[in-house]
Amino acid sequence: MASSIPWRTGEVKEVVWETPRVKSIMLAVPGWPGHLAGQHVDLRLTAENGYQAQRSYSLATPPEQQGIALAVERLRDGEVSTFLTDELRPGDQLELRGPLGGYFTWEVKQGGPLALVSGGSGVVPFMAMIRHRAARASDVPVDLLCSWRTLEDIIFRDELARLAERTDGFRLSHAITRSASPLPPGVYGRRIDRAMLLESLPRPEAKPLVYVCGPTPMVESVANLLVSVGHPPERVKTERFGATGGAS
């Protein structure tokens, strides 16, 4: 394994609004050493006065694809995310290092079944895993349960629906927590609860590898529910995101 983790310069190739608040950023990174589904990069912005801000973003692209893609949610008053969603243009350069984190990753050869639960843009590392699975034509059973505020917030909506239609062992469920309008059939209209976890994910007896990614409060609540329905805590991997305790 390489002994250092250099900062690299990536060039923005394309930026696409996925939802009214989430933008995909496609980058070409010369010297990129390849990555595993579920890994992330640290991204560093430097202001003209030398002030630096650093954030971590999960990779949405599978190892099989050229280049990397991030999905950035625009946070109100977010000093990094507003720049990335509002200012960044193709041709711009970004400073990043990675791939990082071997803990929250998955490869086809690890097998399954997989139980994936996401809150909002927590779906991004799972997108890399699902795309990796599709690229390898794998039939490892994968159940993905995604929680969103409204239907309009669903990231990768069409691609997820297309992959679920293949009925090759990938099962998709959405839970909408704040919708006023009627929901399509098969979409839960409530927060994730025990019944939903039992219905939409493999039962604990199937010994799934469980991954939960989302904002800290959602991850805490879902991880506790998963343990309460019988998933052993050591098989539940979590990745929280959001503001941390210190200055950021």
Binding site: G101, F104, T216, R240, G242, T244
Partner: peptide
């Protein structure tokens, strides 16, 4: 509020020079 140690992967890599 806290995150997971996984979010410290970059810092840990810098300090320990390994994943």
């Amino acid at each position: 509020m806290n995150l997971d140690g996984n979010a410290a992967a970059g810092v840990l890599r810098e300090v320990f020079t390994e994943e």
